[in-house]
Design a protein around this nucleic acid. Sequence first.
DNA 1: TCGTTTTCGGAATATTATAACCCCTGGGGA
DNA 2: TCCCCAGGGGTTATAATATTCCGAAAACGA
Lengths: 151, 151
Amino acid sequence: MNEETLQQALRTADNLCTQRGVRFTAQRRRVLELICRAERPIGAYEILDQLRAGAKAAPPTVYRALDFLLEQGFVHKLETLHAFIGCTHPEHPHASQFLICSDCGRVKELEDEAIAGSLRALEDANGFRPKRPVIEVIGTCAHCTHRHTQS
Amino acid sequence: MNEETLQQALRTADNLCTQRGVRFTAQRRRVLELICRAERPIGAYEILDQLRAGAKAAPPTVYRALDFLLEQGFVHKLETLHAFIGCTHPEHPHASQFLICSDCGRVKELEDEAIAGSLRALEDANGFRPKRPVIEVIGTCAHCTHRHTQS
DNA sequence: TCGTTTTCGGAATATTATAACCCCTGGGGA
DNA sequence: TCCCCAGGGGTTATAATATTCCGAAAACGA
Ligand SMILES: [Zn+2]
Ligand SMILES: [Zn+2]
Ligand SMILES: [Zn+2]
Ligand SMILES: [Zn+2]
């Protein structure tokens, strides 16, 4: 994420917090910034290390900020990686799918209507009321596949 | 899982191991049995506690057996719960979806063709080669929903 | 039988996440 | 003004999950 995109993301978060009547504190802002600056999913303890470069910090500091950012939908947690990634469209709540490249570590967030639909059908057929869908596919991205066939 | 089903599952695992030329050791058998006996997903350290009732054991003992059982497809790992569950049809490799009730803890394993199809389409559109899909939906099962509306 | 590979025991350690306690600050009344 | 309260956050400790490493034992192949 380049500097401009980052600043835009932080402004968006700030505005959303104002709208929602919640506080976008310096701490929360800093953690969101670190997550967005990382080109890949970042773990809670990596965030902690970077926070510690500027001030004292302990795990609860990070996890409290993460809880907030997750609640507000500004970041997503990747369960298979125990890591966090900035959301690409935090304006509205949504269920997304993640394609995780185990080769380069990059992740693509998608909102596919077909998947959401089949999932709904599956849930309906089973009388299941979904709260939080987790769809993460681990594999190799187009870029890395191409790189392999070349070499 | 009742006693008969359990014995059947263990026999199936044993046969598959013979076919595949891998060893279904006492350790591995014991761990599979504990997972199958649990009516719900069971954590590695719960398995460890139960193993310790009969003999000495340490975390690597459990994790080694789990690695084997996962490789062979006899059990699945639920990433959102950090827990393990017996596979309902270990004969063939497959990608399944899990409906996880956060109320009663029960999990339903499904193999839905529509979801698998939309996921394939999504992957193809992105030039992504999948290795391991993780699809887990946390929510409330039909039974628990019903129980709530009654009370 | 011998040498190789796989499995296993066990200690230590790494990694991820939460609990509990206290203090501070800012805002809304009495 | 003072009191009180709720949210945010600092700090220590601990829980929960998972892996690394070393070496011995067992199984396997020839
Ligand atoms: Zn998103
Ligand atoms: Zn890649
Ligand atoms: Zn299965
Ligand atoms: Zn239920």
